[in-house]
Design a protein around this nucleic acid. Structure first.
Lengths: 152, 152
DNA sequence: ATCCGTGCAAATACTTTGCATTTAC
DNA sequence: GTAAATGCAAAGTATTTGCACGGAT
């Protein structure tokens, strides 16, 4: 995953402030929950629940339950890249959006502002407020386009 | 599924011509295979493999095998709408693209030409040749936007 | 002491695969 | 007759759920 330089800052600066927010909403801080949070803070790209479970030696169901809970609280989001399992990441102050190259698999995370012109065009032409946070924009990057699909 | 008026024509006009193409590539026309083809020709929107199996009283594995085979031959494509199973449809002469409202679930199929301005903008800004055939453009349609997300 | 969160096990949903039998050619 | 395609069963992957025990508050 390549993060563009202007990807929005995280909704919470560090584990401590996230934990404070959780506590404030009446949640307990169990070891698995803390480990999941810490892992998300120390990873750059989105991670699969299964990988988290393996790396942290936590049961998969607990990982899923925590991720879902954190997602409901707005601390976490998930994105689907190809046919792989859902990938989870910390939520930003604004929703990070994704581009996914189906050639090389590279994922680019971009700030929502950069997609506003695209979004505006879609809104004018189709009456849709588009969001590339849960499903990315899929296509071929400049490097892969020549070899694969139409060069143009 | 709403098909915009300019959605590209199917790659094959009817079951007969599709069957001819299959025969030409050395494939047999078994009853299940014919039923799947006929079902796809008589449905407007994309269908789940499980639904086809149930409606046609064919084993699910045969449905999946036939859909995959037809997809390899370019007669069928599949798209992912939300967290539901993959949905299969006849392939057009050009690839039909999709918009999906996450509010009401409505799906709009559009001709690729209509998305060319959007595509061009994405290409200029991000160096990607985007394709909304396998994953749709996800967002809120005009009707759902006021109630759900930001009205703007 | 309470009850929330965990691990474990099992269930569910979607899709793929192995294999013996059937069937199109 | 031969090879391809099928149904059935089982396996594989992703995710969810039930429940008794353990730990955070």
């Amino acid at each position: 995953v390549t993060h563009a330089p202007d990807v929005p800052p995280l909704a919470f600066e560090d584990v401590a402030s996230a934990v404070r927010a959780l506590r404030a909403s009446g949640l307990r801080l169990s070891t698995p929950r803390r480990l999941v949070l810490e892992a998300l803070f120390s990873t750059d790209g989105p991670v699969a629940a299964g990988d988290l479970a393996r790396e942290l030696a936590i049961d998969e169901s607990s990982v899923y339950r925590n991720l879902e809970l954190l997602e409901q609280r707005g601390l976490v989001r998930h994105v689907h890249l190809g046919h792989t399992p859902g990938l989870y990441a910390l939520a930003g102050t604004r929703e990070t959006e994704y581009l996914h190259c189906e050639g090389c698999g590279r994922v680019t995370a971009v700030a929502p502002e950069r997609l506003d012109p695209v979004r505006e065009r879609i809104r004018e032409d189709f009456g849709y407020r588009a969001r590339f946070t849960h499903f990315p924009i899929v296509g071929l990057c400049d490097r892969c386009a020549p070899s694969r699909g139409a060069p143009r």
